[in-house]
Simulated assay, not measured.
Amino acid sequence: MVTTQAGLGRIEGGAIALLDTPFPHIGAVLEQEGSLLSLASRAVCRRVSFDEVTLRAPLGRPRAVWGVGLNFESKAARTGRELPEQPILYLAASSAVTETGAQVMFPQTVTEPDYEGEIAVVVGRRLYQAGESEIWPAIAGITAANDMTARDVMRTTGVPALAKSYPGFTPLGPSLRTLDDLGDRDAIRVRTRVNGELLQDDTSAGMIFPIPDLLSRLSWFTALEPGDVVLTGTPAGTGQDRACFLADGDEIRVEVDGVLPLVTRVVRPA
């Protein structure tokens, strides 16, 4: 599913089938109906090529964006950190969400801007104090995310929300992949390329807290509502791991299985 300036659509045969629906974005469908099932019966207004439309952030402005620190074994091994016994959770500002193709401007005060390619899970049905077996049936789909982080701000403040909430610091993928179109839910691949160079390549099989476990734990402290987004952690290969941070003009491309690529370009103010 995609959100375009012309409305909602399904990807069919390399084109977009625009649907007859009043909803402005996928997030609005989830907030009102708690699932995407109604879209399956919507009539197709017309079919267009990708060149004819502009892809928007599919979820609009989510009510909540949750994230987790250090959730890949490869990342822990690269940094020499012990595996956490509990998820390191944080809530980032939804005002940081932006769409694919957007330019993200780093403040002059940020000296160590970094990328984090991640699998983003979109909640379709309310989850509160849920068991692991309840998680996948309540998920609307997955998309790509770039959970950008100001490493210097993280180091000086120790507050993830401050290091990740600058405008544009949470680009979300241009399409949503529903679970009926997802093969192995336990091994979803995520890759990140910077200026064409592959720097991150892992699957959700390498997570310390797998998706059902992670969302179940989170749901015991908060209610996850339809349209909420949970970022599930980044594997090894970030700029932090290489002591090489983003520079003016860099292009980051995050690829998640079955999701259109998420492309972000970064700029420094003059």
Rank of each mutant, 00 (worst) to 15 (best):
A223L: 14
A223P: 15
A223C: 14
L224C: 12
L224K: 05
L224P: 09
L224H: 07
L224D: 04
E225A: 11
P226L: 03
P226K: 05
P226A: 03
G227V: 00
G227H: 04
G227E: 03
G227D: 05
D228A: 02
V230W: 00
V230L: 06
V230R: 01
V230P: 00
V230G: 01
V230D: 00
L231D: 10
L231H: 09
T232V: 02
T232D: 12
G233C: 06
G233N: 09
G233P: 14
G233Q: 09
G233W: 06
G233E: 11
T234V: 08
T234N: 14
T234D: 15
P235A: 03
P235H: 04
G237A: 11
G237Q: 09
G237P: 14
T238F: 06
G239I: 01
G239P: 14
G239N: 13
Q240D: 13
Q240R: 13
D241N: 15
D241V: 01
D241F: 02
D241Y: 05
D241H: 14
R242G: 12
R242V: 06
A243N: 15
A243M: 12
C244W: 08
C244D: 15
C244L: 15
F245S: 10
F245N: 10
F245G: 13
L246C: 05
L246Y: 02
A247M: 12
A247Q: 15
D248Q: 12
D248T: 02
D248Y: 03
D248V: 00
G249S: 05
G249F: 00
G249M: 04
D250G: 13
D250Y: 02
E251K: 10
I252S: 11
I252R: 09
R253F: 01
R253M: 08
R253K: 13
V254N: 10
V254Q: 10
E255P: 15
V256Q: 08
V256M: 08
D257Y: 04
D257C: 09
D257R: 07
D257H: 09
D257V: 00
D257I: 00
D257G: 12
G258S: 07
G258V: 01
G258F: 01
G258C: 03
V259E: 06
V259G: 08
V259R: 08
V259P: 12
V259S: 11
V259F: 02
